[in-house]
């Protein structure tokens, strides 16, 4: 599920058991998305219950959460919740806001195949940067920290998109027909390769051209 970051009829779900942090995050989101409906959950169980009422446009979660009320916060509970979300809701935009983001390396294969926006925000980020990660996820973009990779990890199908775009000059629709996937999948491959090349939206810059520059610098295209 990807969408532009319009605040009209936007539904956000924030999962965090630390009341003060949750309160601050919700206040920041309310300021940025004043018309949004913001729901909260303090446990993995409560989060799944909220999701059973209908998927939000974006789910923002901490990793260290209790499984159920009265239980202690544990990384494993957050990791398992996220694992099930990635498996059951491939179209759900997700932001992981946590002090334990490095634990996400355990879910790298699942994150790599997620079809919607997925960004990782260290909880220590300034609020504005956190809100940028929320905006990116709502737009279907992907952001994973550099230290979760040992180098540039690019799949063959993403390389093919680069080749067809920059050597053959094809647009997304033509690329989709060429490689026999949906146009939406092509756009998703773009976000994957941009994350691998650490190319993200910047004011005044064309992201596709930035992608081409970085791809050539890394020798991915001639």
């Amino acid at each position: 599920m990807t969408m532009t970051s319009s605040s009209e009829s936007l539904k956000l779900l924030v999962v965090d058991d630390h009341e003060a942090v949750l309160g601050g995050t919700v206040m920041a989101l309310e300021k940025t998305y004043p018309a949004a409906q913001i729901c909260t959950a303090g446990t993995a169980q409560a989060a799944l219950k909220e999701l059973s009422y209908g998927l939000p446009h974006l789910l923002m979660m901490d990793l260290s959460i209790p499984l159920a009320p009265g239980e202690p916060s544990e990384i494993d509970a957050g990791i398992e919740l996220l694992r099930s979300l990635l498996a059951d809701h491939p179209d759900l935009n997700i932001v992981v806001q946590s002090a334990h983001v490095r634990s996400l390396v355990r879910l790298k294969p699942a994150i790599d195949t997620h079809q919607a926006g997925f960004t990782i925000a260290d909880k220590n980020l300034p609020m504005q940067e956190m809100l940028t990660k929320v905006d990116w996820a709502l737009k279907g973009l992907i952001y994973t920290p550099r230290d979760m990779r040992t180098g540039i990890e690019v799949k063959p199908e993403w390389l093919e998109v680069l080749r067809l775009a920059f050597k053959e000059g094809l647009q997304d629709k033509a690329i989709a027909e060429e490689i026999n996937v949906a146009e939406r999948t092509v756009r998703h491959y773009w976000t994957k390769v941009q994350d691998a090349l650490e190319v993200y939206p910047e004011a005044g810059k064309n992201i596709r051209i930035q992608t081409e520059i970085r791809a050539r610098e890394e020798g991915l295209i001639d």
């Binding site: 630390h18 003060a20 942090v21 309160g23 601050g24 995050t25 206040m27 920041a28 300021k31 002090a99 909880k123 220590n124 300034p126 609020m127």
Partner: peptide
């Protein structure tokens, strides 16, 4: 987490 909470309150 406490530092993060203080930070968020200040920022907002």
């Amino acid at each position: 987490q406490e530092i993060i909470a203080i930070r968020r309150r200040l920022e907002v």
